[in-house]
Design a protein around this nucleic acid. Structure first.
Lengths: 340, 340
DNA sequence: TTGATTAATACAAACGATTGCATTATTATC
DNA sequence: GATAATAATGCAATCGTTTGTATTAATCAA
C-alpha cells in the first residue's frame, strides 16, 4: 500500500540500490541524484520499513524493558531515565509490564527475544536464574535492575543498596526510641526484599533488640498488602503491638495509613511509619511520609548507559555491578514511640 | 547465531516449509513429523524470528501507545488498561513517552509508522490535525485518547468528559460559597484544557459570577507550573486573591500546596484546592485532595478495545467517539471560603 | 493393471530493505 | 588515441519467514 524504495526507483528510472544508498547519504552517489531521491521520497511520503531493515541488518534499535508494575510510581521515573538515554542514542524502548506475574514475565521475555531487541533491561521477579539463563542462551545483552547480585551470578546490574537503605531507616526509628519495630516486606524471593530484611536485621541486632517473629511480615506489593499486614499486627496483644514499621514501598505504606486510621489511631503519635521509595506525592501525605528515597531516575539512566556500553571502555570484559545509595528523607510520619 | 527454521530442517532432513507448517500446526502435516519438529525446535532452543514473520505477514501484533508523561500518575493506569486488553488479544504494546515535546511526539510517530505497528493509541499534544493527517496518510488505524472530538474531525476517540468534570467541580466550589475562583489550566491548545475552561465558564456564568481575567491562568503541566501560577495569584491585592482554584491535574495542584504553605496559609481554611485526575496518593495528601476522578483504567481499556475493533460490529463504518464521565471526589482540600 | 483420489512433503517466490561486486560512463594520463 | 583511474550506478544475493503451487508417494476404485 505505502511507498517502497522500489516505487521511488521506478518513478525516477534508477535502481533500488541507488535509492537506498542515496537515502543513507552514501558517498558514491552523486549529489544530484541524492537530491532527486530525497525529493521523490518526500513527495511519495516514503516511510522506511524498519522491519525489513532490521531483518537485513540484524539490529532493531530497540531495547526491551520489563518492569513489574507500571502503576507503582517507583517505575515511571526509572523508565524515563532509561528512555532519555535511549533517545539520545537513537534507540527506542519496548516497555513490558509483568504485573508481578511470572508467566507474563516469561512470555514477555520470549516476545522480546522474538522481536530481536538489541538488549533488555529487566527488573526480575521470582527466581532469576531462569531469566538469566534464558537471556544468555539467546545471546541477548541485558542489565538487571534493582537486584543485588548474588555471589555466583556474573551479570551486569544496577541496583540501589536496599540493605543500606533499610539500615539507615531502622536506625532512625531506633534513635527515636522505638524497640517494637515491624517490617512489612514483600515476597522474600525478591532481591530488594531480601536486602530490606538484612538491613533491618543488622540495625536491630546492632542495638541488641530482641527479634519478634510476629513483626516479620510478608505481603504482596500493593497497597492492600500493607493494609492487611498492619491489620494483623493491630490484632496482637496491646503490649505487643509494634510502635513503628518499615515498609517495602511507599505504596504498601499507604495501606498502613488506612489501617491505622481505621483503628482511630494517630500517625506518628501511636504508630510511626517509614516508607520506601519516596514516590511523588509522599511529601503531601497526611502526615508527610518519612521514607527512604530511591535514586529512581538515576537507576534507569545508569542501566541504559551500562547496556549501551557507554561504561564499557578499558575493562569491558568484566561485568559491572553498579550500586547506588538511597537517602533517608525524614518527614512527619515518624516520631518517638507512645508511652503505653 | 541462533537457531533458524533452516537448522531444524537440515537436522531432520526435511524442507523448511514443512517445518514452518509443522510449527503452526498445519492440518496437512502428519502428526509424526509435527512431533519430531516440535522436539527438535525445543532441543535447539528455537525462537521464531518475529521480525521476519512480520515482514512476510505484514502485521506486527504490536500496538503503539504514545502518551505525554509517564511520570504523571494519570497515565500508568491508562497504559495498564490498554495493556491488559492487548494481552488478551495476544498483542503487545510499544510505549512512547513524548514528554510534552512535540518534536519527540512527531519522531515517535515516525518510528511507529516505520515499525509497522498494527495500530496507534495516542494522547496527542499540540495541534492534532497534523497527527491525524500523518496517521491517515500512512494508513495506520488509530484511536485518540483523552481528546474531545472537534466537529470537523471524524476519528475514533475515547475521552473523559472534562467539561462535565470541571462543571461539577466548580459547582461544588460555588455551592460552598466561593465567588473568587481561579482556574489553573494547562496550554489551552490541548483539548482537555479547552474543556476544563468551558466547564468552568459554564458553571461561573450560570451563577452570574463576574469573570476576572486575572483568575484565568495557563501553566505547564508539571508541579512547578501550578506552584508558579498560585504564587502569582497570591501577589494580587488582598481583596482580589481568589479563595479557591480548580487545577488541570492533581500534579499541578500539588504545586499549589507548596505555594500556599510557603505563604503560611492554610488549606482549605484560607484557600480551597480542587484537583483533577484523582491520582493514587491524592487521598493521603495533607489535607486529602478533593478532586475529579478520571476513569483512567477504563479509558485505556476502552481505547484498546475500540482499536482492536471489538466494538466494531454492525456499524463499524462510522467512527466511534466514546465519552466516559468523571466523578467528583470530595475530600478535605475544599471548604467554605474564609470571611476576609 | 491403470487411472483417479488423497495425503504428505518440497520448491520457489515473496515481504522490503542493504551491500559486495560487476558494470558502465566519465575523466585523467601518457 | 589508447589505457588507466575514478565516479556513479546496477545486479543479484541475502536476512528468516510464509504460502501457492508443484511433486511425489500412497491408497483406492474399477
Amino acid at each position: 500500500m505505502g511507498t517502497r524504495i522500489k516505487d521511488i526507483a521506478r518513478e525516477l528510472g534508477i535502481s533500488e540500490s541507488t535509492v537506498s544508498r542515496a537515502l543513507s547519504d552514501h558517498p558514491k552517489i552523486s549529489n544530484s541524484t541524492k537530491e532527486e531521491v530525497r525529493q521523490a521520497a518526500n513527495e511519495l511520503n516514503y516511510q522506511p520499513d524498519l522491519i525489513a531493515k532490521s531483518l537485513k541488518l540484524k539490529q532493531t534499535k530497540t531495547i526491551g524493558v520489563i518492569i513489574s508494575d507500571i502503576t507503582n510510581p517507583f517505575y515511571p521515573e526509572i523508565i524515563k531515565g532509561a528512555e532519555d538515554v535511549a533517545n539520545k542514542n537513537s534507540l527506542n524502548i519496548f516497555l513490558c509490564n509483568s504485573d508481578y506475574n511470572r508467566e507474563r514475565q516469561q512470555n514477555y521475555l520470549k516476545v522480546l527475544a522474538g522481536k530481536r531487541v538489541d538488549g533488555i533491561i529487566i527488573s526480575p521477579i521470582g527466581e532469576k536464574y531462569e531469566i538469566i539463563n534464558f537471556l544468555i542462551k539467546n545471546r541477548i545483552p541485558f542489565v538487571l535492575i534493582d537486584i543485588k547480585p548474588a555471589i555466583k551470578i556474573e551479570t551486569d546490574c544496577v541496583y540501589a543498596d536496599t540493605e543500606y537503605g533499610a539500615y539507615i531507616g531502622v536506625k532512625h526509628l531506633i534513635e527515636l526510641g522505638h524497640k517494637k519495630i515491624a517490617i512489612i516486606n514483600g515476597p522474600i524471593v525478591n532481591s530488594p526484599c531480601k536486602q530490606l530484611k538484612s538491613g533491618y536485621m543488622k540495625a536491630i541486632e546492632e542495638d541488641k533488640i530482641p527479634i519478634n517473629e510476629k513483626y516479620l511480615k510478608e505481603c504482596n506489593l500493593k497497597t492492600e498488602g500493607g493494609y492487611r499486614a498492619v491489620k494483623e499486627l493491630l490484632k496482637l496483644g496491646k503490649e505487643e503491638i509494634p510502635t513503628a514499621a518499615i515498609f517495602i514501598s511507599d505504596i504498601t505504606a499507604i495501606g498502613a495509613y488506612d489501617a491505622i486510621y481505621e483503628s482511630n489511631m494517630k500517625i506518628p503519635d501511636d504508630f510511626s511509619i517509614l516508607g520506601y521509595d519516596d514516590i511523588p506525592g509522599a511529601k503531601y501525605f497526611f502526615p508527610p511520609l518519612t521514607t527512604v528515597a530511591q535514586p529512581k531516575y538515576e537507576l534507569g539512566e545508569t542501566a541504559m548507559k551500562l547496556l549501551i556500553g557507554e561504561f564499557a571502555s578499558a575493562d569491558n570484559w568484566k561485568h559491572k555491578q553498579i550500586k547506588i545509595l538511597p537517602k533517608l528523607i525524614i518527614r512527619s510520619s515518624t516520631a518517638k514511640p507512645p508511652d503505653r
